[in-house]
Design a protein around this nucleic acid. Structure first.
Ligand SMILES: [Mn+2]
Ligand SMILES: [Mn+2]
Length: 289
DNA sequence: GTTAGCA
DNA sequence: TGCTAACAACGCTGG
DNA sequence: CCAGCG
């Protein structure tokens, strides 16, 4: 075991969300207080950072490879990227100190893989990424999410919902660790096709011609090894400092909105609508109709 | 935001 | 020692 | 194979 780390926080007064005056210190405090909720989703997964050292009004950058200066107590896992023909040393955020260190790097957004870093080809979830196509907004995504819920209920599946923190919604189904991404992606795609038959609002392909304005895309392509999803409770790099928030289906029906959940309103004391998700492992459903 | 490299 | 430039993503699909 | 997208 490495010695207990001490982290030197820098520029804690620097404003990262100008329109709300939120400083980096507030961001660090947020991630420290949310660590109990976030670590179960981070501790054995690769993480990708979306960093904004100059704040959300400036361009950010993604970071996968652990940067020079990564402390020795930070866990990393090597993966060889075929595309880039190089090794990537993914950060594995398996302790609160790592979360605090990432926050100090101005990693406003944390994106996680859908599989364990030690078993990257086996998905932990089926992931429905619901993307409203302008001028469609959150209400349209909510309408489609509720239709998707009905379809999944018919198939006997328990599903879990979160806001993306932007305008979309994410629906997850935790799985037995025995499927390939191909199997899961195909099942999500099929459900998208079925949903598009039931609702004119739904589109199931991301091609530019298929993405009709005002529709909601059921984006199945995110179900792949080394693709990522915004981590539950991660901040989003938006002016409003919103959070990707796990919510109940009941809350969605009652008119919950993405902007209800932000750095000022979210705490780890709130009820957890995702309690038990990581042990609620289910079989892939088979659709009828 | 941090580090490597150079004056 | 102090300053500054460089650097920080890739997997997947459609065409 | 490349461009575009998330
Ligand atoms: Mn999305
Ligand atoms: Mn998407």
């Amino acid at each position: 075991m490495e010695p207990s780390p001490t982290i030197e926080f820098s520029n804690t007064g620097k404003v990262l969300f100008p329109s709300l005056g939120i400083t980096k210190g507030r961001v660090i405090e947020y991630y420290i207080r949310m660590a109990p909720r976030m670590l179960p989703h981070l501790e054995d997964r690769a993480v990708m950072l979306h960093r904004f050292p100059e704040g959300v009004d400036h361009e950010g950058f993604y970071e996968k490879d652990a940067p020079a200066g990564t402390p020795s107590w930070v866990t990393t896992a090597v993966h060889h990227s075929e595309t880039a023909d190089r090794d990537i040393h993914y950060i594995v955020c398996d302790r609160p100190e790592t979360l605090a260190w990432l926050a100090n790097l101005a990693s406003l957004e944390l994106h996680v893989t859908l599989s364990r870093v030690g078993n990257p080809r086996v998905p932990l979830f089926a992931f429905f990424d619901l993307d409203p196509q302008p001028p469609a907004q959150f209400p349209e995504a909510a309408e489609v999410a509720l239709q998707l819920r009905d379809l999944l209920v018919e198939a006997g599946v328990r599903s879990y919902l979160k806001t993306s923190g932007k305008k979309g919604l994410h629906v997850l189904i935790p799985l037995e660790e025995k499927y390939t991404f191909r199997q899961v992606r195909d099942a999500v795609h099929s459900a998208g096709i079925l949903l598009s038959r039931r609702s004119d609002r739904v589109v199931h392909e991301a091609s530019s011609r298929a993405k009709r304005p005002g529709s909601v895309l059921v984006d199945y392509a995110q179900n792949a090894a080394w693709k990522t999803m915004i981590c539950p409770y991660s901040l989003r790099a938006r002016e409003e400092a919103t959070v990707s928030m796990p919510i109940s289906w009941q809350a969605l029906e009652s008119g919950a909105r993405p902007e209800d959940f932000n750095i000022g309103t979210v705490s780890s004391k709130m009820d957890d609508p995702w309690r038990g998700i990581l042990s609620d492992r289910q079989e892939i459903w088979t659709e009828s109709e």
